[in-house]
Design a protein around this nucleic acid. Sequence first.
DNA 1: CGAAAAGCGGACCTCAATGGTCCTATTCAG
DNA 2: CTGAATAGGACCATTGAGGTCCGCTTTTCG
Lengths: 144, 144
Amino acid sequence: MIFSRKTDYGLRALMYLAERRARGPVTLSEIAEKLMIPKAFLSKILQQLAKKGVVRSLKGPSGGFVLAVEPSEVTLQEILTEIDGPTRVFECFATESDCTLYGDCLMREVFSEVEDQIGSVLSRYTLADFRYSEKQADSTASKA
Amino acid sequence: MIFSRKTDYGLRALMYLAERRARGPVTLSEIAEKLMIPKAFLSKILQQLAKKGVVRSLKGPSGGFVLAVEPSEVTLQEILTEIDGPTRVFECFATESDCTLYGDCLMREVFSEVEDQIGSVLSRYTLADFRYSEKQADSTASKA
DNA sequence: CGAAAAGCGGACCTCAATGGTCCTATTCAG
DNA sequence: CTGAATAGGACCATTGAGGTCCGCTTTTCG
C-alpha cells in the first residue's frame, strides 16, 4: 500500500477545511466527529500539516484549524508527500551506490520511471478537485 | 514502499535462473549463496513462483529450479504481481462500494489512474531486459 | 531396497511501522 | 482567572514483513 490511513484522514480533513475556509477556525472535535476519525490521531495529523504550513492552527477559545492555502494551488502530490513523506517505490536492497550483483542494474531506472508516473498523475489534481459534501439526509451541516 | 524485499529477491532469482536456463535445474542452495539471499526465505518465494508456473521445481538429487517461461515473454508487471500480489495503491477506508463521506469520490478514480500508470511502465519490461551478470573479477559464471 | 539429495510446507519467531491513546503544558477569549 | 482550545511527548497494541525451523515427501542412484 502506498498511501496510509493517515493520508486518507489527512486528505479528508483538508477537504473539510477547504469547504468551510471562509467561516473561521474549525475545531478538531468537529472535524473528528464529522469525518469519524479518532480525535487524538487526527490531532497529530493536523499538527503535522500545520508545521508544513498547509493549515493554520489557532489556540484558545474560538480556536481551531483553518486551511492556509488556496485549494486550487495545492496538488495531491504535495499533500500526500507532506503527510506520508515522499513516495518511495522501491528500495534497492543491494548497496545503494553500486550494487555488486548486477552489472548494470536497470531496476533503478524502471522504478524511478514508475515514481515519475505516479507523481505526474498526482500533480494533475488539486485539493479543489476533491470537494467534501455530506450525503446524509439530515442537514446538520446546513450548507451555505 | 510498493515493492518488498521479497520482490527484490524473487526478481533476482529469476534473473539468475534465466541466465542458466539451458543448463538444467539449479539448486536452491546455489541461488541463495550466489545472490546472498536467506535460503529458507528464498525457498518460500520459489515455491510460490512454482505454483504460479513461472519456475518449475524438481525434487530429488540433481533436482532444483528451472525457469518455466521465456524470459522475453514475462513482464515485470506479471512477475511483481505474482510475488507480491496486485499493486494496491490505496485502500479506501470508507465503505468500499459506496462511501458516505464524499458525494462523488474522485479518489478511486485518481488512484486507479495511478495504478494504471504503474502497470503500464512495468509492462514495458520483460525478464529478458534484466540480465544477471556477476561483477566479481573471477568468472564463476562463465557467460555463454 | 535404502540412503542421500533435493524441494514442500506448516508452525513459529522477531521487529519495526502503523494506528492509536493519554496526559500535561500552553495559549488565548471573555 | 478560568475554561476552551491546540501542542506535543510518552506510551501502547496490532499487523505484516522478513526470516527460521523442522519434519515430510519425492526422486535418484548404488
